[in-house]
C-alpha cells in the first residue's frame, strides 16, 4: 500500500518535472512573447515589463525561480542577495507566479476564483453521467435484445457520436428557447449549471452506459451467476449482490479517463455558456500567450487527474479482491 503510493508519487514527480521543464523552455524559445502581439510598446516600458516578469534574466535562472522553492528575486533569501522578506516561492511552494495578461492578478488568484466553479460543474456532469449511464446500461443488459435495449443503445451511441457543443446547441434550443426553463448562459445559481452539466456529462453518460451494458452481459454469462440462481436466490438478489459489482468494475476504471475528459470538455462548455471557470481561462490564456496562466492550469489539471487516477486504482482494489496493489 505505502509502496504503491510511493511509487506512484515518484513517477508523478518525474512526469510533472518533464512537463514543466519542456513547456517552460519551449515557451521561452518561441519567438514573440505575451507583450508584443497587439501594438509596439515604447522601449523603456517594454524593458520595465520584462524586468517585472524577470524576462531579462537568463532562462535557466528564470526556470529555477519558477520551480522554486527558493525565491531568486530581490525579496529572496539574504544569501542569494535578496532582502529576505519572501525567501520561498515558485511552483514547489504552490506559487504559479503572476499572470502575464491580467497584470494585477497572480495565477493563484485566477485559479482560486475560477476553480470552485469548474469543479462544481465537473462534479454535476460526472454525477449525472454516472446516474444516467449506469441506469441505462443495466436496463439495456437486463432487457437485452428487446426494443428497449436497441433504442437505448442507439441513443447511447448517438450520444458518443456528436460533439458536446452540438448537444449544448440542442439543449439550448429545447430548454431555453422552446421551453424557457433555464437561463441561456452565465453563472450564479444552480439553474445556470443544469444545462452545461447535462451537455458536458452527456457523452460520458453514453459511454458509461455502453461499458455497463457490456460489463453486465459479461458477468451475467458467468458460471457464478448460474450458481447463484441454482442456490435459489431471488433474481433481484442475484442482480444486486452478484452481478452489479462485477458489471460496473469497467466503469470504475473508466472514471479516471472520464474525469480527464470532463476537464477537457469543460473548455468548450464553459465558453458556450459563458461560465467563468478555469477551463475558459485556460483557452484564453493559451490564445493570448499568457504562458504562466496556461502552465499553471496545465500543472493543476495534471495533479488533479493524476491523484484522481490513483484514487480510482485504489478504489478498484477495494472492489476486486483479486487485484494486488503491490504487484500491479
Amino acid at each position: 500500500m505505502t509502496r504503491f503510493l510511493l511509487r506512484r508519487l515518484m513517477w508523478f514527480a518525474i512526469t510533472l518535472w518533464v512537463v514543466v521543464t519542456v513547456s517552460f523552455f519551449l515557451m521561452r524559445a518561441v519567438r514573440g512573447g505575451p507583450f508584443d502581439n497587439d501594438r509596439a510598446l515604447h522601449e523603456s516600458i517594454e524593458r520595465n515589463i520584462k524586468a517585472r516578469y524577470h524576462l531579462d534574466w537568463h532562462p535557466f535562472k528564470q526556470y529555477l525561480h519558477y520551480i522554486g522553492p527558493l525565491n531568486l528575486d530581490e525579496q529572496g533569501p539574504e544569501f542569494l542577495g535578496g532582502d529576505g522578506t519572501r525567501p520561498f516561492g515558485g511552483v514547489l511552494t504552490g506559487d504559479f507566479g503572476p499572470s502575464f495578461k491580467y497584470r494585477d492578478f497572480t495565477v493563484n488568484d485566477i485559479i482560486g476564483q475560477s476553480l470552485p466553479i469548474s469543479v462544481s460543474l465537473g462534479v454535476i456532469a460526472l454525477l449525472w453521467a454516472l446516474a444516467l449511464g449506469l441506469t441505462v446500461g443495466i436496463a439495456s443488459a437486463l432487457w437485452r435484445g428487446t426494443r428497449i435495449d436497441v433504442g437505448l443503445r442507439l441513443v447511447a451511441t448517438a450520444g458518443i457520436a456528436v460533439p458536446n457543443f452540438t448537444i449544448a446547441g440542442f439543449l439550448v434550443i429545447g430548454f431555453v428557447f422552446v421551453l424557457p426553463l433555464f437561463p441561456v448562459a452565465g453563472y450564479g445559481t444552480w439553474r445556470h449549471l443544469v444545462l452545461p452539466g447535462f451537455a458536458l456529462g452527456g457523452p460520458f453518460a453514453a459511454y458509461i452506459a455502453r461499458l455497463t451494458r457490456t460489463g453486465m452481459l459479461e458477468v451475467l454469462s458467468q458460471d457464478y451467476i448460474r450458481t447463484a440462481h441454482a442456490k435459489g436466490l431471488p433474481p433481484r438478489t442475484v442482480l444486486l449482490r452478484h452481478a452489479i459489482k462485477g458489471g460496473v468494475l469497467p466503469v470504475v476504471s473508466y472514471l479516471g479517463p472520464a474525469t480527464a475528459g470532463i476537464l477537457t470538455g469543460s473548455l468548450v462548455i464553459e465558453r458556450i455558456f459563458a461560465i467563468p471557470g478555469t477551463g475558459s481561462h485556460f483557452v484564453n490564456s493559451a490564445l493570448n500567450r499568457d504562458y504562466t496562466l496556461a502552465m499553471g492550469v496545465t500543472i493543476l489539471y495534471t495533479v488533479l487527474v493524476y491523484s484522481l487516477n490513483t484514487a480510482v486504482d485504489f478504489a478498484y482494489t477495494l472492489l476486486d479482491p483479486r487485484i494486488d496493489l503491490e504487484e500491479s
Binding site: F12, L263, L267, A294, T298, T302
Partner: peptide, 10 residues
C-alpha cells in the same frame, strides 16, 4: 494520466 489535451493546445 496527464490531461494531454492541455499540453496539445499549448
Amino acid at each position: 494520466s496527464i490531461p494531454f489535451i492541455f499540453l496539445v493546445i499549448f
